[in-house]
Write a protein that binds this DNA or RNA. Structure first.
Lengths: 149, 149
DNA sequence: CCGATTATGAAATTCATTTTCAATATACCG
DNA sequence: CGGTATATTGAAAATGAATTTCATAATCGG
């Protein structure tokens, strides 16, 4: 963790940036937080360390981390984006519509088939998103299917 | 087409709704329009038939069509939603980041693998979204990779 | 330490979407 | 048919996430 923060610090300096306490707090908070945080959640948690940190700085810092490749923007259609750290290998998400739990999964074969499809259409893929929405085991038991919307 | 509109009309009545000219124009416009329209695009096109239609009505009508199962909301991360008609069988999307072209594809095997993964985690899937972003054949030729963002 | 540049937070702005509201249109029922 | 309850409309206002602006503060390189 310390090592990671130092590395990011160096990259920011190398890119002409400057150090700042607020940003350091946000970055550390981000990597400590559970994955898939919203800006609002992270702002709240980060303010426990430093009362004065504005949400704008959180927005800016996460955009920065994304540019540097350390964070990924997610959108589960909730109205607000979420961010996850980009340290673990690529994966996709199962999102529970009731309790919000997010399960990460990785499936090489799906990825391979995606590549095939993509190539078949002459496409050069740069990214993809796969999310499966539904009900997790806990929420699925003891619930009737529920009408759509 | 006529048949489809009548069917929707009947469903709306059956659900306690009333007929309205504005809505009829929007619905017909939607099915005539190319797929993956934004509200703004559809509003513009629909206003050529009836100057006075407000975009609010377009918003409301598409939400209605979605509830009835005739339309699907899409989000390619552009800031505004898009809608496609839900008449054709399920498919996913290849989205060109340069020219915006959207190619639809369908891959039974990917779907099957998704089901497997989902079940493996005890999940009850209700929907999924798979989008592959990149550059279409035309846009990919004659372009250097381009830095991330 | 100086001067230049970057970062900050608050406030203002943007923009898609939703809500409110008064006016209008439509369906249902006698 | 006519009356009435109810749905629909469009404009304007409200919402809410994200971004921009701006004056101030912090940090770096020399």
């Amino acid at each position: 963790m310390k090592r990671l923060l130092e590395r990011i610090d160096r990259e920011i300096l190398a890119a002409g940036g400057k150090r700042s306490r607020s940003r350091a707090v946000v970055i550390e908070g981000f990597f400590r937080a559970r994955d898939h945080v919203t800006i609002e959640e992270l702002t709240r948690s980060v303010r426990e360390s430093d009362k004065g940190i504005g949400s704008v700085t959180v927005y800016r810092t996460l955009k920065l981390l994304e540019r540097l490749g350390y964070a990924k923007e997610l959108d589960f259609g909730e109205g607000a984006r979420r961010y996850e750290s980009n340290l673990s290998p690529h994966h996709d998400h199962l999102v529970c519509r009731r309790c919000g739990t997010v399960i990460e999964f990785e499936d090489r074969e799906i990825e391979n088939l995606q590549d095939l499809v993509t190539r078949r259409h002459g496409f050069h893929p740069t990214a993809h998103r796969l999310e499966i929405y539904g009900f997790c085991r806990k929420c699925a038991s003891g619930k009737s299917q529920g009408r759509i919307r």
